[in-house]
């Protein structure tokens, strides 16, 4: 226990020094509060503006024409689900395998090069990824599509997953790898059955964070999925997504659409929040397991 300041007040600690200490403490607390403020304001605003839009229709109906009240953005939810499903299917295996390669096998130049590429992709502006996939996939397919959008998101999610997987696998003690190898298990078996499960929830955390990141991306989807006012379940056709709908409706002159945009913002925020909190809880547990 740290003794209270009053108990051990020594004659050497001057009044001015105590005042400076209090002022600094107060300043730090104030900065903390200011940092929290934007987050609180975002929550308050989004919930205040969008809560009214949340009803059953919002989640189950397509948008009504301008002037007809009500309607929903079900096509955006289905579209986001489809795009994210495909993006997860592409990026998770790719990201995990690259991460395993970097942590367990990668030595020397090749590994350095792969790590460098991941680093660059990690800091690539997302609209550049969108433009690239537009040029390569959309133009070649002759149509905007959910597939193109999921490829654009894969370009963004792959490096996140790769670097996170590598870091997490490096936290697994070498003792366990040695124990596995000394049992006469082949290296790949030790990695897949001992190392990866030990890092299990950490890897799951990385997946959650990558999905949370991908779900909110707008620019790359704009250039690849295009958007759609109607439900589309064909991955090869233009598809809507929640961030796109927010983008379209927020800029729309039709006032009834503004509420739908705020509603979309609430659902997106809630989904990202759930993913992030789950990721946090899991990574906390992971730390306890490794140490």
């Amino acid at each position: 226990m740290i003794p209270a300041a009053g108990v051990v007040r020594s004659p050497g600690v001057s009044r001015a020094r105590r005042i400076r200490d209090r002022a600094f403490t107060a300043g730090v607390w104030a900065c903390g509060a200011i940092a929290l403020l934007p987050l609180m304001l975002i929550f308050a605003f989004v919930i205040g503006k969008g809560a009214a839009a949340l009803n059953l229709d919002f989640f189950t109906k397509e948008p009504n024409p301008p002037g007809v009240p009500g309607g929903g953005i079900v096509q955006a939810f289905i579209g986001t689900g489809m795009i994210m499903g495909l993006a997860i299917a592409f990026s998770v295996p790719l990201g995990l395998l690259t991460g395993i390669y970097l942590a367990e096998y990668g030595r020397g130049r090749t590994a350095g090069f792969v790590r460098f590429i991941a680093e660059i992709l990690l800091s690539t502006p997302s609209i550049v990824a969108g433009a690239f996939v537009w040029a390569v996939v959309v133009v070649a397919m002759g149509t905007f599509s959910a597939i193109a959008a999921s490829i654009a998101l894969t370009v963004l999610m792959w490096p996140i997953l790769t670097r996170a997987t590598e870091e997490i696998l490096r936290l697994v003690p070498d003792d366990l790898r040695e124990a596995g190898l000394a049992l006469g298990l082949a290296r790949w078996r030790v990695i897949l059955r001992v190392v990866v499960p030990t890092a299990g929830s950490g890897i799951f955390t990385a997946i959650m964070l990558a999905v949370a990141r991908g779900m909110g991306e707008t620019a790359p989807i704009l250039l690849t999925a295009l958007g759609n006012d109607f439900v589309n379940t064909n991955p090869g056709a233009p598809t809507d997504a929640v961030p796109l709908r927010i983008y379209f409706y927020a800029g729309s002159p039709v006032v009834q659409f503004h509420a739908l945009a705020w509603g979309g913002a609430i659902t997106l925020l809630a989904a990202v929040l759930v993913l992030s909190i789950t990721a946090r809880v899991l990574s906390h547990r992971q730390l306890k397991r490794v140490h």
């Binding site: 003792d175 366990l176 040695e178 124990a179 000394a182 001992v194 499960p197 030990t198 490794v290």
Partner: peptide, 13 residues
């Protein structure tokens, strides 16, 4: 030729 290490290292999972 099996091996036992200095630090006990059971698989945590």
């Amino acid at each position: 030729i099996g091996m036992v290490f200095q630090r006990p290292n059971p698989f945590p999972t």
